[in-house]
Amino acid sequence: MKERILAFIENLGRIDSRIVYALVFLATAIPLIMNIRIPMPVSPEVKSAFQAMDRLKPGDVILISTDYGPSSAPETQPMLEAILTHAFKKDLKVLLMTHWRFEGLIMGIQGLDKIAKKFGKEYGKDYLVLGYRPGVTAVMIGMSKDFRNIFSTDNEGKPLDSYPMYKEIAGDDGILNYKDIKLLVGLEAGDAGNFWIMIVNARYGVPMIMGTTAVITPEYFTFYQSRQIEGLLGGLKGAADYEALLGISGFASRGMVSQFAVHVLIILLIFLGNLSDIARRFRS
């Protein structure tokens, strides 16, 4: 009997990988289809990011840098939508750009169009899309004197200073640069965010919050701990937390239940794998 139990436990470690894929699929799909919700505590770093946005006054300018592509959109796009919802609710002026990958601009425009429409915001009056310029450090340093050094026109090809929003936010000197930016929001899937912090925060003192894919989140915790960034949204959980603080229920909140189910499944599989290994040792 003991032998049979040990053999059964050992066999658990030899589950066909296709069964594991099927289980992962079910653990992901069922909570999404059933629209299951679970309460989640909000992380302090997301609360801090939310407060940094919340402190801004109507008319203040935020610069959003969408440095990601479709491959990381399930994590970063809900962040963008939640932050834009917050910004438009507070009547902030939004500038959007990217300098990492062109696809980031497409994702950014998609998010802007969706949320701006919801709040009845107008292009050129409430928000502007600067466009895409590669070059990371060169772009950042170039923007420090005048954004028009790098983005002489917007994404539509019209001169930046031809828009009423530009005249409003550039102030009396007619020059738009980092001094006019009250908060920089970096949505990052790679190294570009490090440069925002190391150059634009360290050199020009622009306050910033970061929304990062989960892979690079541990790296950004060091910047949060050192107070170089005011807040951090890490992965899908960060986006879900921000949605919770805003009181909205978007893709991130929905996806976190699947995330939870898959994590439980992975832990269970690791446990079974180890149990199977112990059983194998016993038998041999």
């Binding site: 992962v24 699929f25 992901t28 799909a29 999404l32 289809i33 491959s71 990381s72 959109a73 399930p74 994590e75 894919t213 989960a214 892979v215 989140t217 541990p218 890490g234 992965g235 899908l236 959980k237 893709f251 929905r254 996806g255 699947s258 995330q259 898959v262 994590h263 992975i266």
Partner: peptide, 22 residues
């Protein structure tokens, strides 16, 4: 902890794709 976050990232991508499909 970095590996845990990596798993979370990959699962998020899967969720995104499965959400699109269903």
């Amino acid at each position: 902890s970095a590996f845990g976050y990596t798993i979370m990232a990959r699962v998020s991508l899967l969720i995104g794709r499965i959400y699109f499909l269903i």
